[in-house]
Design a protein around this nucleic acid. Sequence first.
DNA 1: CTGAAAGCGCTTACAG
DNA 2: CTGAAAGCGCTTACAG
Lengths: 359, 359
Amino acid sequence: MYKLYSKKIIILNRMEFNMTLKDIAEMAGVSTMTVSNVINGKTSRVSQKTRDKINSIIEEYNYVPNMNARSLSNNSSHIIGVVTFLEEKEYASGYNYFENPYVSTMIGTIETELHKNGYFTMLQSVSRSSDILSLVKNWNVDGMILVFPTSAQNLEKLMDAANCPIATFDSNYSHPNLINVISDDEKGLYLSTKYMINHGHTEIAFVADYEGNIVLTKRFNGYKKALEDSHIPFRPEYIFSYPPSYEGGIEAGRAIAGSKSPITAVVTTADICAIGIMEGARLGGYRVPIDLSVIGYDNLNLCQYTVPKLTSVSQNVPKKARLATELLLKKIHDNESDSNLGEIIDVEIVDRQSVISLY
Amino acid sequence: MYKLYSKKIIILNRMEFNMTLKDIAEMAGVSTMTVSNVINGKTSRVSQKTRDKINSIIEEYNYVPNMNARSLSNNSSHIIGVVTFLEEKEYASGYNYFENPYVSTMIGTIETELHKNGYFTMLQSVSRSSDILSLVKNWNVDGMILVFPTSAQNLEKLMDAANCPIATFDSNYSHPNLINVISDDEKGLYLSTKYMINHGHTEIAFVADYEGNIVLTKRFNGYKKALEDSHIPFRPEYIFSYPPSYEGGIEAGRAIAGSKSPITAVVTTADICAIGIMEGARLGGYRVPIDLSVIGYDNLNLCQYTVPKLTSVSQNVPKKARLATELLLKKIHDNESDSNLGEIIDVEIVDRQSVISLY
DNA sequence: CTGAAAGCGCTTACAG
DNA sequence: CTGAAAGCGCTTACAG
């Protein structure tokens, strides 16, 4: 009844009605199976003539397959779950995790990459890692990308329960079904510290409360190693254990300016923090970069808009995102690929105006 | 065969196997229909005892319904398509639309709101508006949110073809199935211009190539109206028709500083542009804000990090996003709601340091 | 209060 | 080269 009515509509207006395989098969005078084969490129089993006829009908009526039906019979959805973690309390406070440029660059790049390869991006911010499993089961996702790293424990539980490949970043956990793309965090701070040293600085402070945080600890180790390699003594009093946020930076900058210590340079683990440090140092009476050279981390767009423009370490976020997506899709296609190795992305200094040479 | 094997696995490890309605029905000794009713809260038709039994099995085995199957029989997917437009050439150039803070704030807020209400976010950047229709058909989405406005023509075609409600922003098109949330753009520039006037400025420039752009034209009208209301003559030579980007701002700032005109204040339509103007004016020998007061638009986080901190117009993007999502879901639930009216979001000045008083 | 059965729109062995 | 039929996991009239 409905069908009959619909057919009439088609004649009047070809866009109004959602075609199905069956409709196309009827029009072409073939079975649905043949249409399905043509659509899925299994053309070896269909004559050229039939193929052409079917394709022209598809085009004419603007047919688009129903992915829900396809997923159901295929047991594969072409959906990739892209997940961001949000602490319970952040969630409650209406914090928008997306305003973090790391996250937005990641997700934008991932979406573009997935789209190009015919996959769909289902976005979700979760606060409990069990929510991820629901997403997997709800939509039978072909794979997942976890934009923020989660603990090895959570990851382990998740990997056991979800039987699809998962990609993550900067994790220290490994599993045959896990793609793990990490950036060379130690090298990052090694480079920024070395950069200061090469510009004649020896009294170099480090700002970040790195303890207990895997990524920040790696960066701290880079700082230490650069000092060692140049035979500059490590001074615990040059470590300013504030969170690497704008506010933390302001406090650190104030503390440095206030202490009248011989510090002439400071490295840190986030651009936002570096900007705070410049502000705090200024509030404490310093001129930047004359009295204090500063290097940030992340190379956000922001760095171009500050005065002085901020020298920073770039971890090439788009490349990280692209690689993870690529490896994930490869793993989905041929499960034997041993792409579970931790791929390491290189890191580099982007030179601007926030460091002066003491020579 | 498979089923039998699976059942064995369940006994060994309850997580390894994706349960179905049928499995639960068997375990509970009822029909699948009863289980379905319990899950969907149609509890009036099921005894408390049966309900409890089913719920405990669901919990025990961690059952999550297959949304693909549900969508197929329901003809409703609980997916909302969230779409961003990307020009063909931007797409090719690898431009990441997500780095635009307007977009990332929008999408983050929308996702949170949808999630809260039990909907799923399918993200897609498209370059041709016909791609949107494919998304609708592919997944049978319950609704769509277009983060960037598209032309009335495109919108009209889309609304005719897609038979789901669609939400968009700042559009001048209207349709019974369209939710249109707009911000008071004219008021935005009226406020910033008036703010300058109230601080004693009368020689006020406007930067943006507004012609042909609906939103920017509204803002320009606000500028003009503020001048009129204060009986300050409008001077065409105070209009700097550069794109409201960082680069455009630099050129405008240079032009203003270079012309040695009596201009003491400048308003514009984007924070990035305002930051460019400050930089350009400085490059031209001006001190900011002593020689030139500046007000931006959008109130990005960025405004706090510049020197001087940038006074700006806030259009309350999270509120815009939240309202659009809310109205969309309402329209999905009861189609008779006449929420197709253009809701207007208010706009306000956020006071910082980039304006000085001439009094 | 509950069940048997048809149907949503696809895909995929299995036959011919 | 093509078809008839079963099945993916749900929901929903329709009966009882």
